[in-house]
Design a protein around this nucleic acid. Structure first.
Lengths: 192, 192
DNA sequence: AAACGCGTGTTGAATATTTAACGGCCGTTG
DNA sequence: CAACGGCCGTTAAATATTCAACACGCGTTT
């Protein structure tokens, strides 16, 4: 509702630059080895500027993850509003497109020790998203919805991780079809 | 000699950003259609900032060309200092590497009406570079050195332009070998 | 004709970022 | 132990950039 008071362009550019070089470094070396100095140097940003926006490199990593999770969320909710093709269950392709378009980030995430932070949030996002899709009256022997969502979400992430780690060997279209079939087989979707 | 008083990082980042989006636009549409507003918008830079560094879009284009010409010059002179492999005649590969590494720019240059500005400066750079390589006592019927340089430089640019326009169908290594042979056949190089 | 939209250059005040410096901590080297 | 180098996190003053607002020209619409 409230029109977010357009943030100063300098802030946008600084953050962009900082995040970009941080992710580069993140894919090159161990997180613990990365130094604020390096990030600033590569981003052509003063060291102080980083502290102006992030309290330390852990915070920086958190913010990066947060940003992408939020993007994914808004991607889903925006599409839900659009009536015909709802959410990530009926058409997972846009989700895969997003993964593809930000390959450097997700690739770095999946090939790093600190993946746990990330996986946890991603898993939460997916399972919540699936939960609401399973509200239909179920004539099957009652399987707990939350449990099932967790199960499917974990499976979904497993596939994504495999896909990213193998340099995206299939198109997003193909992946979307596969996932949709898997979902259908497990009766996740809602309508008739 | 004088250590250039390290320019403010904000200037560096702004110029980088401006030039980047300008070149993007340059490869997308006709130069005359490009507007300062567009450049600023895409670069996440205030319109005023562009005027702070460039007087108008023509100046901006000039500066872009100038930058690359200077890079090429310093690339050659630096290598001349290094004794064993001198200049662009004995080993043109680094030159081709530079073209390859800045493909977007040169590609835009060669596929645009305004190529003339660029070609003129590039031609001048090459021919001057060749001139100094032809100082040797020549037992051939006297062909004017300047004329010959112009001739060879034009030929060189022709090859580069063909290579860029065709999306670099050969490796820089291969191109360098070809060019070196052509130079030798025309007795451009100095030492026995 | 007047009114409008759109791009250009240019200003002044507000603000983000830079620079250079500080003190502190830690690991290495003498 | 002392000295050093490297990174940290923070500060004050200098500076580049932003924003919003001008006035201008120019083509289009009313």
């Amino acid at each position: 509702m409230e029109t977010t008071v357009k943030t100063d362009r300098r802030i946008l550019r600084s953050k962009q630059s900082i995040i970009k070089s941080f992710l580069e470094l993140f894919s090159e070396k161990e997180f613990e080895q990365i130094t604020i100095n390096e990030i600033a140097e590569r981003a052509n940003v003063n060291r102080g500027t980083i502290y102006l926006h992030y309290s330390d490199k852990y915070d920086l990593l958190d913010k990066c993850i947060e940003d992408h999770i939020n993007e994914l969320i808004s991607l889903c909710t925006k599409r839900e509003a659009h009536k015909d093709k709802q959410g990530m269950v009926q058409d997972p392709k846009p989700i895969f497109d997003y993964f593809r378009d930000h390959f450097p980030f997700f690739s770095a995430m999946f090939s790093n020790q600190r993946v746990f932070l990330f996986r946890e949030q991603l898993l939460n996002f997916i399972s919540v998203n699936l939960m609401v899709k399973m509200k239909r009256p179920d004539n099957q022997p009652d399987i707990d919805h939350e449990l099932k969502a967790q199960f499917m979400a974990s499976a979904f992430i497993g596939i994504v991780e495999w896909w990213i780690r193998h340099q995206m060997p299939h198109s997003t279209q193909f992946m979307a079809e596969q996932v949709r079939n898997l979902f259908e087989n497990n009766q996740v979707y809602t309508n008739h």
